[in-house]
């Protein structure tokens, strides 16, 4: 499981997180909601090990990984804009982690089938639509057999028509993996379908919610009073 404990973070003198805590159980998808610039991406990058928190801890499967670099954490990361390796085919993108001894080649077929990537395996990323790039980015993260999944608005580059179908697929793919997942989105509809639980980021603090409506209500009301640390 994933535990984020009282994390603080500033970019220079711009403080973004001031006491963020959350727990995610194996197989749980926790959706992170918050206004633009509230630090959602920052939080994911801290869990991934790309940024180091000023205070607080990140614990994965009971192990404090706060001081570990990203390559030692085994997290699957889908950044805000699906960042595929431009010089590699879809297949080589998905199986990239094999170079570092991660992932199981036999897993490929299942992922490819689940995300319907079969016809595209030999294509280059720039030949794919936004939706297919997102699928590849997710497949690549899942293939690496991560202990935690981090998805930063994975469907923001997808048009509405494709989104309905993709949300279902992503949901199923995330279910299949029993890694705890953090899923950032701005879209309540998407949040409702994909999430098991919710965390709102407001003024650098985190507030948990059990339903989307509760989370949206929190957002509407603005800064929590007397909560956080």
């Amino acid at each position: 499981m994933l535990k984020v404990e009282n994390v603080h973070f500033s970019y220079g003198d711009r403080t973004v997180l001031r006491g963020v805590s959350l727990d995610v159980e194996p197989g749980e998808v926790r959706v992170i909601l918050g206004p633009n610039g509230s630090g959602k991406s920052t939080l994911l990058r801290i869990v991934a090990g790309i940024l180091r928190p000023d205070r607080g801890r990140v614990v994965i499967d009971g192990e404090d990984v706060t001081d570990r670099p990203p390559e030692d954490r085994r997290v699957g990361y889908v950044p805000q804009h699906p960042t595929l390796f431009p010089h590699l085919t879809v297949k080589d993108n998905i199986t990239y982690s094999l170079r570092n001894g991660r992932g199981d080649p036999d897993q490929l077929d299942e992922l490819v089938e689940m995300l319907e990537l079969g016809e595209h395996l030999d294509r280059r990323p720039d030949e794919l639509s936004g939706g297919y790039q997102s699928r590849v980015a997710l497949a690549r993260a899942l293939f690496s057999d991560p202990r935690v999944l981090l998805l930063d608005e994975p469907l923001s580059d997808v048009d509405l028509a494709a989104k309905r179908d993709l949300v279902k697929r992503f949901r199923r793919a995330l279910r299949r993996s029993d890694a705890p997942a953090l899923y950032v989105t701005h879209d309540p509809w998407e949040a409702e379908r994909v999430g098991d639980s919710y965390t709102v980021l407001l003024d650098g603090r985190s507030v948990d919610a059990d339903t989307v409506d509760e989370a949206l209500e929190r957002l509407r009301r603005g800064a929590p009073v007397g909560e956080g640390s």
Binding site: I50, P70, E71, V75, H81, T83, S97, N100, A141
Partner: peptide
């Protein structure tokens, strides 16, 4: 930097 960050979550050291 995204490319590098993703590669590192997939197990690459900075040099790799």
């Amino acid at each position: 930097r995204d490319l590098v960050e993703v590669a590192r979550t997939l197990g690459d050291t900075p040099a790799q």
